[in-house]
Design a protein around this nucleic acid. Structure first.
Lengths: 211, 211
DNA sequence: TTGTCAATTGTCAGTGACTGTCACTAGCCT
DNA sequence: AGGCTAGTGACAGTCACTGACAATTGACAA
């Protein structure tokens, strides 16, 4: 296992430069008003090269997000088998928020990532892609849960249902965080905890009995 | 209240022709492989006219879906106030499936609609838009629920959370229906009922105790 | 019935995302 | 050093979509 050659390092630098410049332009001028040409002119590569690294203009907007998601999946895989499905997902998310900051900073400033996330939530075209990506992750999560519980995901619908409900709440969390004023990592962590606690009571037949 | 003039009727016919031809071409050759030019050539209008009726190629794919959703929202509004939030949504959906068939048939054959739905689920670009549209509807639903319960949707997160969980399950239902073999209205109704029944138990701390 | 107005449509020219092709450059490896 | 090949750039083309303006055609009053 030698360190990667010059060629490989060059590729990595080009890729990171494209991501960084793209996110800066997107968050500064807006996604739709930024053209791919502007990005590649700044980085000084051809448009063709951009599309060799990213299959679409949308994809580059999710490059960092992608990393965060992979981390969450790993965290879920590592939860002790004793935990029930819902607790495992909940704890995976909550423990994830604690360490995610450092991992992001290695690629782009944390603040740029947070602004990117808000941009995604507020740009219809990106929001759509974000949601589709989420459902793809749900499939992964459902399979992990099914495996933990020793179930067949194609027979027992409960893993998918639990994951769908869980993800729905997580999505609302992200939405509310984006709309709020406190745009910090701590804020999103607190919201996550609070909203997940509300889920079970929200399904009760009547709400008026207790708050 | 006079009947609409010739001009209005012509517009309606053009619109319906565009929808019908588009859905037929989409389901037959695939969404991506169908160009807007093919659609407008068949209907014999200019491309510019197409984009005056539909803001994008995607939008025409959701024209019928749009109608179905409006119906569901109306059904929810009509649920008796005595029902709890979850029961109201559940019953609105289930009662909706019973009458939706006729409403669809007035625009396109039911079978074409069902095939369109599957095409949406299996075409990434359309699935993304579908999911975004769903979240827009969730906002509407949350407001209705909040109103029914006398809550402020901006203060109490429970309406959004309940709707998010409910919608998550509905989405999985649609997905599973699309993948299955029984592509009938009855099948989707049965799945809906079955999956919603699974939601509350799926959130229980442990699953092994009971099925 | 006819002429005028306004709504609707078509034509045309352009932009921007994305793709296939092919020549060229530059690490890599012997 | 020199051949091999991964990666890049240049170029031409497709397709979704938009603005501007001209042409057409219902609607409606004189």
């Amino acid at each position: 296992m030698t360190l990667p050659g010059l060629r490989e390092r060059k590729k990595q630098r080009t890729r990171e430069a494209l991501i960084k410049v793209a996110l800066e332009l997107f968050t500064e001028h807006g996604y739709e008003r930024t053209t791919v040409d502007e990005i590649v002119d700044t980085v000084e590569v051809s448009q063709r090269t951009f599309f060799r690294y990213f299959s679409s203009k949308e994809e580059v907007a999710f490059a960092v997000q992608q990393m965060v998601e992979e981390r969450f999946v790993e965290a879920l895989r590592r939860r002790p088998p004793g935990e029930g499905p819902f607790d495992a997902m909940r704890n995976a998310v909550l423990s994830g928020w604690d360490t995610i900051g450092d991992a992001i900073t290695e690629v782009v400033p944390l603040e740029l990532y947070l602004r990117t996330f808000q941009m995604i939530e507020s740009t219809p075209a990106l929001l759509a892609v974000h949601l589709r990506r989420s459902t793809e992750m749900e499939e992964t999560l459902a399979r992990i849960i099914a495996e933990r519980e020793g179930l067949d995901v194609d027979v027992d619908p409960r893993p998918r249902i639990a994951v769908a409900a869980f993800s729905g709440v997580m999505r609302v969390t992200g939405q509310m965080w984006g709309r709020g004023t406190d745009q910090s990592l701590e804020a999103i962590r607190a919201l996550t905890e609070r909203y997940l606690d509300h889920l079970a009571p929200a399904l009760a037949p009547r709400w008026r009995d207790r708050t």
